[in-house]
């Protein structure tokens, strides 16, 4: 009870004090799997250019929440409002499917933990990057290819690899390719589920640097789910801490990490918990 209250208080406070319109507004989201709670009572606003981190132990509901926000899962309750170009804040849960799918390949992007879930493994790197462009009507091969070369460069993949399939790439390269493929249409909101998960530590560091650079350059708004507090320390402006499907603490990243209020966050930060 008290946990939920604190997040709601934060929500109210934040929205009242901020003049600009939120890009993304999440109101009272709940998702159950039968009797089991996936996530519940989640509220927050995300402003343009802001990066929100979601941390919590395994099974705390991070992926469930992210998938509800990105339209991959239908929540049982609540609203997920997005500031659309045409109509301003619109509830994407009740939006018609064609519009939601259009959003997913234009203004939204989703980076999966496992690159193979987010890539077409039988299609060349260039085709992977070009797909979203072609999906929104690009019909000039030369221009699509130039754009793909540019994006491969931005994620530090040599353009000589443009015609190779992702299966010939290392895990880190695959993940960078997935990022390029997602960012090529200049999305306004990026969802990431454990973008550095499953990679070697040195590879993780390079990917994190790259992501931080892109987020800053492009002024991206993003929601990043991770186990790894180093990831949110580096990338997230704000943090949401989840436990058993509830948000137990939320605030500016440095504040939450340096001065955790909730007992669970204190454990998490002191690394007593194996997350």
């Amino acid at each position: 009870m008290t946990l939920q209250k604190s997040s709601e208080e934060f929500f109210t406070e934040f929205s009242e004090n901020s003049a600009p319109r939120p890009l993304f507004r999440v109101a009272n989201i709940e998702k159950r799997y039968g009797q089991r709670i996936g996530c519940t009572g989640v509220n927050f606003d995300l402003y343009p250019g802001e990066v929100m981190g979601i941390v919590g132990e395994s099974g705390s509901g991070k992926s469930t929440l992210l998938n509800c926000l990105a339209g991959h899962l239908e929540p049982d309750q609540g609203e997920v409002l997005f500031d659309t170009r045409d109509a301003g804040l619109v509830d994407t849960v009740t939006m018609a499917e064609p519009e939601r799918r259009m959003l997913s390949r234009t203004d939204w992007a989703f980076v999966h933990q496992h690159a193979r879930d987010g890539l077409r493994m039988s299609v060349s790197a260039g085709g992977n990057v070009g797909e979203r462009l072609m999906a929104v009507g690009a019909r000039h091969y030369g221009q699509i290819r130039d754009e793909a070369i540019d994006w491969l460069g931005r994620v530090e993949i040599n353009e000589t690899r443009i015609d190779d399939r992702p299966s010939a790439f290392s895990g880190g390269m695959q993940q960078r390719l997935q990022i390029a493929r997602n960012l090529v249409t200049g999305p306004r909101l990026v969802f990431m589920d454990e973008p550095t998960g499953g990679l070697d530590v040195s590879v993780q560091a390079r990917l994190l640097d790259l992501l931080r650079g892109l987020v800053r350059q492009m002024g991206l708004s993003a929601i990043i789910v991770t186990h790894d507090l180093a990831v949110v320390r580096l990338l997230a402006d704000r943090l949401m801490v989840m436990k058993d499907g509830h948000v137990v603490e939320t605030g500016l990243t440095d504040q939450v990490l340096d001065d955790p209020q909730h007992a669970y966050t204190q454990l998490l930060v002191s690394s007593v918990l194996q997350v």
């Binding site: 060349s124 797909e131 979203r132 015609d163």
Partner: peptide, 18 residues
């Protein structure tokens, strides 16, 4: 049903690339 035909051009793109 949603006229999402970008993939057809991905196939042609692959053809030209290869």
């Amino acid at each position: 049903s949603l006229e999402e035909y970008g993939l057809m051009h991905v196939k042609l793109y692959e053809d030209i690339a290869r």
